[in-house]
Every structure is written in C-alpha cells, then in structure tokens.
Amino acid sequence: MITWRRLTEDDFPLLISWLEQPHVARWWNHETSIEAVRRDFGPALRGEEPSEELIAHLDGTPFGLLQRCRLADYPEYLAEVAALTEVPSGAMTIDYLIGDPQLVGRGLGPRMIRSAVRAIWDERPDAPGVLVPVSAANRASWRALEKAGLLRVAEGEMEPDNPVDDRAHYLYRIDRP
C-alpha cells in the first residue's frame, strides 16, 4: 500500500541521495548540496510557497517524492501549459520521482501516480483535473502516466527541466470522475 506524508528537513539527506541517482538526475537536473535542497524545498515546507512536497511510502518504506500544486499558483508555468491546451480553473499538476533504482521498472510509477491522483480527489474537492507536462524524451515517465490512466491531450514546446533536452513535451490529463 502506498501512503503519503509531508517532506520534512529530516528527509533532506534521503532526498539528496535520490536526486544523485543517475535515473533521477537525468530528468530532475537538481543541485544536490544540502544548501541547494534547503533553498529549493524549504520554502514549501515552511508554507512560503504553495506547492506541496510529499514522501511516498510503500509498506512503510520511503521510495519516492511527489510535488503537487495548483497550476494557477505558478502563473508562468500555467501560461506554458495553457499554450498547449485548455486548463480548467483549479487544475492541479504533479511531478514525481522514484528514488531507489532497484524499484524502477517494477510498475511502482503508475501505482504512485494513481495513488497521488486519488489523494488529490480526496483532499482537493475543488480540483477538476490533473495536467502533467513531461519531456517527450522521458518515455518511462509518460508511459507511467498512461498506465496510471492519464491521457495524452497535447504536444508542444515547453521549457525543459534539463537544458540538455529539447523543448518537445507531451501533456497528460485526467479529469475528476
């Protein structure tokens, strides 16, 4: 069973170890010093930024990170998504990673995404849907979204997370049942 809890500063060493894994670093392209992690994740933990940072647990063991937010809380990001498709008021987005390389490719990504979407439906009754942009080159990520029940609704250019990637993105969506 997948459960969720808020990320805390005590989780930063674990998060750093995940961000340093080659399969994560390739797509997240994140600095891994404790200072950088505090700088980038600390504001959400302190309520200074509207995103939520959650640790995913499988049978009590942490295995992944989920970021979720309302698209409207990040106007520049919303504008990029809205350039590709209609964005309903209150729509949310997620970003995710599986930290342990031994857990990659075992169907945990789709399970994690389905669990995250169910949590949004339960905890955010005003969220009409979830839209997730993903680099077209990140096949594992967009396949996990498809297996979790999200549909590809658009393709287009967005700013990549990693500067080595081109701007080609797919946009996935799931609406509240």
Rank of each mutant, 00 (worst) to 15 (best):
S115Y: 00
L131M: 09
R114E: 06
W121H: 07
V134L: 04
P133D: 07
Q102V: 04
R111H: 06
Q102R: 12
G107Y: 02
L108T: 07
G105N: 08
V117D: 13
P101I: 02
A119H: 14
P133H: 01
I120H: 11
S135A: 12
L103H: 04
P125T: 01
S115D: 06
I113T: 09
N138Y: 01
V132G: 08
E123L: 14
D100M: 07
D100N: 14
G109C: 09
A136I: 02
L103D: 02
I120G: 12
G99H: 14
I113Y: 15
D122S: 13
P125Q: 04
L108I: 15
P101T: 00
P128W: 07
D126P: 03
V104T: 08
G129C: 15
S115T: 13
D100Q: 15
I98T: 03
R118G: 01
V134P: 05
P128E: 10
G107W: 02
A119E: 14
R114A: 11
S115Q: 11
Q102P: 03
S115V: 03
W121A: 06
I98N: 03
S115L: 04
P128L: 08
G109L: 05
R111W: 02
R111P: 01
V134W: 03
A119K: 10
G109T: 02
V130M: 06
W121N: 05
P101R: 03
V130K: 04
A137M: 00
S135W: 03
R118I: 02
R106Y: 00
A127L: 06
P110L: 13
R124Y: 13
V104K: 13
V104H: 13
I113F: 14
G109H: 01
A137C: 06
R111S: 11
G99Y: 13
A119C: 10
V132L: 03
V130T: 06
A137N: 08
A137L: 07
G129L: 13
G105S: 11
W121L: 05
P110F: 10
S135D: 11
P101F: 02
R114Q: 13
A116G: 15
R106A: 04
A119G: 05
P125A: 01
P110H: 13
G109N: 05
M112A: 10
I113S: 06
L131P: 07
G107N: 01
L103R: 14
L103K: 07
G129T: 06
R106E: 07
P125N: 01
P101C: 02
R111G: 08
W121Q: 09
G109V: 04
M112F: 15
A127T: 12
I120F: 12
I120Y: 11
P133Y: 01
E123W: 10
P133A: 08
